Computed example of a mutant assay.
Amino acid sequence: MEGRTVKLRAVLASWGIVVGLVVPGLGQFREASENTKGPKLGEAKVLKWQAGVIVTAASGPCTGIVGYAPLPIAWPEQELSVAEEDISPVCNVKNEMVEGTVRVMVVSIPHLPAGEEARALITFEIRRHALIAPKDTDIYTLPDPKRLPREIRPYLAPSPKIESTSPKIKSLAKELTADKEKAWQAVEAIYDFVRDKVKHQKGPVKGALAALRDGTGDVEDSTSLFIAICRAANIPARTVWVPGHCYPEFYLLDDDGQGHWFPCEMKDSRSFGGINETRPILQKGDNFRPPYNRHDRQRYLAEYLTGAGGKPQAKFVRQLGSL
């Protein structure tokens, strides 16, 4: 077990994660604070999240196995530390960042004898805060698309199922925001339109345009439509993924020129600019190029396993637990 622990600590150190210590957010992840003009931190809930992969050579020896498992990272509203680890000696583990917002654990297993099992699991302790909307919303302005930080620019572009360059979406964005003097009012008009327009209905994900056409859709569809209209209006917006749910957040500048992300809830009770959500944040974004297929684009970065020889069986672990 000590060998596993040393190996994992070396990997986590390369990620900026130290066993037993809370991980601070970096770069664009610092905007939510009591000392900023963005959303304030609300009530927190502490939970455990286990992620990783278990590989079994069930039908014979396997070689050249590589597995990819997304892991959560720190955000302004989310602190995390490593509570437990289980890394088999046959596993070589490294990390890779995707689009700057998702960390992927890459697990390589050169050889796995028949009937044996290899595990690469990490259990995080996550402290997730709700976010409280600001009281003075008149201080916010729309960002200049030409002056956006590099890490924010992708959230003005189309994504899978978020057709922000569609003529219908662009025309609607112009219509909804035309008479709004304040940036907050403009985004809120988009929010209220989508909540009124799209009646929630379970089913396959159809995307922004189809939800607009049909007037129905899953919460992913209403989230996509809100994001698409925001982007068409030059308001950066992106998807936040939590276990079993997603919601959008949008980006505005305060009167000091500092940018902030604000969440909103598309389903159930109305919640704009803040959110009473304490499930762990798994990913932020909706246009990922997976490391195992650079030609693909995914709304949510999925797990993946490949092998050069044999037929390895994989069980990807995504488990939420309480302390």
Rank of each mutant, 00 (worst) to 15 (best):
D221F: 04
A208G: 07
E175N: 07
D218V: 10
Y155I: 07
S171Q: 15
K267F: 14
I139Q: 13
G203T: 08
Y155M: 09
H245C: 03
P248C: 02
V219S: 12
T177H: 05
P204D: 08
V198N: 02
K174Q: 13
P248G: 02
E163M: 03
D255W: 08
A233S: 09
H260F: 12
A183L: 06
P154M: 13
V194F: 04
K174E: 14
K174I: 10
P145I: 07
P154E: 12
T216I: 11
V205W: 10
C246Q: 04
I126H: 05
Q258H: 15
V194Q: 05
R270W: 09
T223L: 05
Y247E: 11
K170Y: 07
V240Q: 03
P145K: 10
I162Y: 06
H245F: 06
R153M: 14
A130P: 00
K135T: 10
L142G: 01
K202A: 11
A133R: 02
S159E: 10
R238F: 03
L142W: 10
L156P: 01
Y140M: 10
L252M: 07
L209W: 02
D136Y: 13
D192C: 10
A232M: 06
L212E: 08
T216Q: 12
R153Y: 12
K199G: 05
C264V: 07
S222E: 05
D138H: 11
R153D: 09
T177A: 03
A133P: 01
I229S: 02
H245Q: 08
L252D: 00
K161S: 13
D179C: 09
L225Y: 02
A232R: 00
S224P: 00
I152Y: 14
R195M: 07
K199Y: 09
D255C: 06
E151F: 05
S224Y: 04
T137L: 01
L148G: 05
G203E: 11
R153G: 06
R231Y: 04
L176H: 09
N234F: 10
V219L: 14
M266C: 01
D218I: 02
R127W: 07
G215Q: 05
G259D: 12
Y191M: 02
Q201A: 04
D268N: 14
E188L: 09
I152P: 00
V187T: 12
P134E: 13
Y155C: 03
K202H: 07
R147A: 15
L176V: 08
K182S: 12
R213E: 12
G217C: 02
V242D: 01
E181W: 12
L172N: 00
R231Q: 06
Y251C: 07
H245K: 04
I227Q: 00
D214N: 15
R195Q: 02
R147I: 02
L212N: 06
K182M: 14
R127H: 08
R231E: 05
F193R: 04
D192Q: 13
D214H: 11
M266L: 09
I139G: 04
R153P: 00
D221W: 05
D255E: 15
C264F: 15
K161D: 14
D192K: 15
N234Q: 13
V242M: 08
D138C: 08
I235T: 03
K168A: 14
L253Q: 09
R128W: 01
